[in-house]
């Protein structure tokens, strides 16, 4: 699963769910896909301040990492929509295998008005619940 946050110029955060991602060839840039129809404030905030945090979680064991950095909105292409479809199918199957009923998952994942935020990763944090939570796992010098 993927959750994404932005913040407006006044420091008010926004939140939404990601429905797909792509790690770019440089291994330091990440595209995250979300629905602007479902999370309009998130898109507005990223356009306004260009800052994004995205947390990726493995639902079966809670292993989690948070990636932070500067972001820009990109045009959405056909490969992004394919990625979103694959991600939503995989996430639904994974959650269902863990006992979450399928009708409950359906409202969370949509690619309607899909948008791509390109995140220039500056910091990576361990976010798995436990003693290492919040630990900086990697950072790039400016």
């Amino acid at each position: 699963m993927c959750i994404i946050a932005g913040a407006d110029a006044a420091g008010r955060p926004s939140a939404g769910r990601g429905v797909g991602f792509d790690v770019l060839a440089d291994r330091e840039t990440l595209d995250v896909i979300f629905s602007a129809w479902q999370w309009p404030r998130l898109e507005a905030d990223i356009r306004q301040t260009g800052r994004v945090a995205a947390t990726f979680v493995s639902p079966s064991d809670y292993v989690s990492f948070q990636l932070k950095g500067a972001a820009t909105m990109q045009d959405t292409g056909a490969p992004d929509l394919d990625r979103a479809e694959r991600f939503m199918t995989a996430a639904t199957n994974e959650l269902e295998s863990l006992g979450v009923p399928r009708p409950l998952i359906a409202p969370w994942l949509t690619a309607r008005e899909a948008r791509v935020a390109r995140l220039d990763i500056r910091e990576i944090y361990v976010q798995t619940p436990g003693p290492l939570a919040g630990m900086l796992a990697g950072a790039r010098s400016q």
């Binding site: 959750i3 994404i4 946050a5 932005g6 913040a7 110029a9 420091g11 008010r12 955060p13 926004s14 939140a15 301040t49 800052r51 994004v52 945090a53 995205a54 947390t55 979680v57 989690s64 948070q66 932070k68 979450v100 409950l104 976010q127 619940p129």
Partner: peptide, 21 residues
Amino acid sequence: VIPSIIATASADGMPNISYLS
């Protein structure tokens, strides 16, 4: 039953997001 999600922002405006039990 279903985890909630919390988004915050630091004083300099960098967002942070995590699940909340």
